[in-house]
């Protein structure tokens, strides 16, 4: 009798690997084993239902349950918290629905909003901090709950309609790919769909560019007049959204407010 051998066999039995529990329990335990086998799946399906509420509404219960079961069979849980179990579900859905890309994008959005809900606290920069900033040399620190993913479809519009209990629009491919931006303002997770130019700008800042360097990059991409206007508009939007939690001068480490 080795406890580790028993636990490995039990794990195999739970995930339907070809193992036998006969070495560890007698025939009377068959009903008990069935209870554990079922409870393992019910718990994980419930977790996915809770996290992917709008994806469930979009797919319908039966299709969602089928997809959840497929995910559970292919992706046993590893983390100590169920909160991370949904992280790979969008990938599973992308494989299950290759011709319906809005499904995986909806799932990404559900998951990102759920993670933002319990992400780290970080207060946005105060208006006083914005006075007399040397913007050319300013580094920007975004809130740690910010997440971004490519959007090829109108999943954002579908999510919003489902959230408002309106009839969702038909799934559609966007004329130009954009992105979905998720973060938390105070205690409320939120998102918006962003255009390619903003994705370009966000990626620059996340990579460590100063605001001045971003302005130059936008001028190079859009021309001087439009580039400068875009940079100012984006900065205003990010401040208004509460996305910026710290501003530093070039060479200084930004310090987030908590």
């Amino acid at each position: 009798m080795s406890l580790s051998a028993m636990q490995r066999d039990f794990r195999g039995w739970l995930i339907d690997a070809p193992v036998s529990m006969a070495e560890w329990v007698d025939a009377d335990a068959r009903a008990g084993l069935a209870v554990y086998h079922n409870a393992y799946r019910v718990q994980l399906v419930d977790c996915l239902r809770d996290t992917f509420e709008k994806t469930l509404l979009w797919l319908g219960n039966d299709e969602f349950i089928d997809a959840a079961r497929a995910h559970i069979e292919s992706t046993p849980p590893h983390g100590w918290t169920l909160g991370v179990y949904g992280d790979g579900f969008a990938h599973t859905l992308a494989e299950l629905y290759p011709n319906d890309p809005e499904v995986a994008e909806l799932a990404w959005l559900d998951c990102a909003l759920s993670r933002a809900f319990e992400g780290p606290d970080a207060a946005p920069v105060s208006p006083e901090r914005l006075v007399a900033v040397d913007w050319d040399n300013a580094g920007l620190l975004f809130t740690p709950t910010m997440q971004i993913a490519v959007a090829r479809t109108n999943a954002g519009a579908i999510w919003s309609a489902l959230s408002a209990q309106d009839d969702p629009p038909m799934a559609a491919i966007l004329p130009e790919p954009g992105a979905m931006l998720v973060w938390r303002q105070d205690f409320t997770p939120c998102f918006r769909t962003v255009q390619a130019i903003e994705t370009f700008a966000l990626e620059h800042i996340v990579a460590g560019a100063t605001f001045g360097a971003l302005c130059l990059a936008l001028i190079e991409r859009c021309g001087e007049e439009i580039g400068v206007v875009e940079a100012g508009a984006l900065l205003g939007q990010w401040i208004g959204d509460g996305l910026i939690t710290a501003i530093s001068l070039y060479g200084q480490q930004p310090t987030a407010q908590r």
């Binding site: 009798m1 406890l3 794990r11 393992y40 994980l44 977790c47 046993p76």
Partner: peptide, 19 residues
């Protein structure tokens, strides 16, 4: 939990000296 797998269910133990 065993070897990175986490069942998220309270699984039973044998009541042995090793356990």
């Amino acid at each position: 939990r065993i070897e990175g797998f986490n069942s998220h269910d309270l699984l039973p133990l044998p009541y042995t000296d090793e356990a």
